[in-house]
C-alpha cells in the first residue's frame, strides 16, 4: 500500500517499529525493571532495611549535600558565563565558548585526576594545603569540585542560545527606564530565561547526583564519609550484597524517572511560551 513518496510499505513500517521498540525494551526498559525487581527480590522489608542502613543514609545525605552545593554554584557560573558570552564582546570569547564544553568531551576520570593533580598530596598545591591543614582530595570539597566540573556545561549551554536569540533589547529597555543592574537582571533577564534555566538545573542536578567517574577518583571511598550513592552502589555490588546494591540503585533510577517527567513537563511549558502565545 503506497500513497505517497514518504510512506513505506506496511512490512517496512512494522520492521522499523519492531527494531525501535525492541531496542527500547532490551536496552532501556528491561534493565530498569531488573533494577527494581532485584531491589525487591528480598521483599519490601529487606529493601527498606538496605535503604535506612546508616552507610546508605550517609551516602544519600552526602549525595544531596554535593548536589546542594554544586547545583547552585553551577547556576551562578552558568548564568554568568551565558551573560558574558551573549551580552558582551570581549577578547577570548570564542575560547570561552569552546572550553565550556570541555567537561562533556573529556572522560570523567580525567576530570577527577585534574583535581588530584592540583590538590592531592603530590599535587601542585598539595604541600601548601597540608601546611594549612586543608583536605580537599579524598574529602567532600574534592567531590564537590569534581561534580561542579563535570556539570559545568549544563546551565550555560542551555542559556547561551536562548540569551543570544533574545539579544540585549529588553535589558537596554529596562536600563533606559532607570533600572539598576540587579533590577534589570531580575525583571528583564531572568523572566525571559527562567524555563531554560530550570531545564538546565534539572539536567545538572541529575548529573550531579549520578556522577560516578570523576567523584570516584577524588572520593577515597570511605564508607559513611566520602561515599555518594553511585559509589555506595558499587561497593555493595562488589561485596555481592545485591539486594542492598539494587535498592540504592533503585533510588537513583527513581531520580532519573522523576527527572524525565519534569523534563517533559518543562519542555511542554517551554514550547508553549516559546511560541509567544501569552500566559
Amino acid at each position: 500500500m503506497r500513497n505517497g513518496a514518504t510512506s513505506e510499505s506496511r512490512l517496512a513500517r512494522a520492521v522499523i517499529m519492531a527494531i525501535g521498540l525492541g531496542f527500547f525494551g532490551l536496552f532501556l526498559l528491561m534493565p530498569l525493571l531488573v533494577v527494581f525487581a532485584q531491589a525487591l527480590a528480598g521483599g519490601i522489608g529487606a529493601y527498606l532495611d538496605a535503604i535506612v542502613e546508616p552507610d546508605a543514609l550517609a551516602a544519600i545525605r552526602l549525595t544531596l549535600l554535593v548536589a546542594a552545593i554544586s547545583v547552585p554554584a553551577n547556576i551562578v557560573f552558568g548564568i554568568a558565563a551565558a551573560w558574558a558570552i551573549t551580552k558582551f564582546d570581549f577578547p577570548g570569547k570564542s575560547i570561552l565558548i569552546t572550553f565550556i564544553d570541555l567537561p562533556f568531551s573529556v572522560s570523567p576520570v580525567v576530570s577527577g585526576l585534574i583535581y588530584v593533580l592540583l590538590f592531592g598530596a603530590q599535587g601542585w598545591l598539595g604541600p601548601w594545603l597540608a601546611e594549612h591543614d586543608i583536605q580537599i582530595i579524598f574529602a567532600v570539597p574534592g567531590m564537590v569540585l569534581a561534580t561542579i566540573f563535570v556539570t559545568f556545561p549544563f546551565v550555560a549551554r542551555e542559556l547561551i542560545p536562548l540569551m543570544a536569540e533574545q539579544g540585549r533589547d529588553d535589558e537596554e529597555a529596562a536600563l533606559s527606564l532607570g533600572a539598576t543592574g540587579w533590577q534589570t537582571f531580575w525583571h528583564a533577564t531572568l523572566p525571559n530565561i527562567r524555563w531554560g534555566l530550570l531545564y538546565g538545573v534539572l539536567l545538572c542536578n541529575a548529573r550531579a547526583m549520578g556522577e560516578f567517574g570523576a567523584v570516584s577518583v577524588v572520593s577515597g571511598h570511605i564508607r559513611g564519609e566520602t561515599n555518594t550513592m553511585p559509589l555506595h552502589v558499587e561497593i555493595l555490588y562488589n561485596e555481592y550484597n545485591f539486594i542492598a546494591a539494587f535498592a540504592v540503585a533503585s533510588l537513583l533510577a527513581l531520580l532519573a524517572l522523576v527527572t524525565l517527567v519534569l523534563k517533559s513537563l518543562l519542555e511542554w511549558r517551554y514550547d508553549y511560551h516559546g511560541k509567544g502565545t501569552g500566559h
Binding site: 533589547d169 529588553d170 537596554e172 529597555a173 529596562a174 536600563l175 533606559s176 527606564l177 532607570g178 533600572a179 539598576t180 533590577q183 525583571h187 528583564a188 523572566p191 525571559n192 509567544g276 500566559h279
Partner: peptide
C-alpha cells in the same frame, strides 16, 4: 539609567511576562 531619556526600540522590547499596565509602570515601580 541616570539620563532620564525615553528610548523606543525597533522591536518594541516589551517585557513579555508583564501586562501592558505593568510594562508602562515599570520605570516608576523600580
Amino acid at each position: 539609567a541616570d539620563r532620564g531619556v525615553g528610548f523606543v526600540f525597533q522591536h518594541y522590547a516589551l517585557f513579555r511576562h508583564m501586562t501592558v499596565a505593568d510594562n508602562v509602570a515599570f520605570g516608576l515601580t523600580i
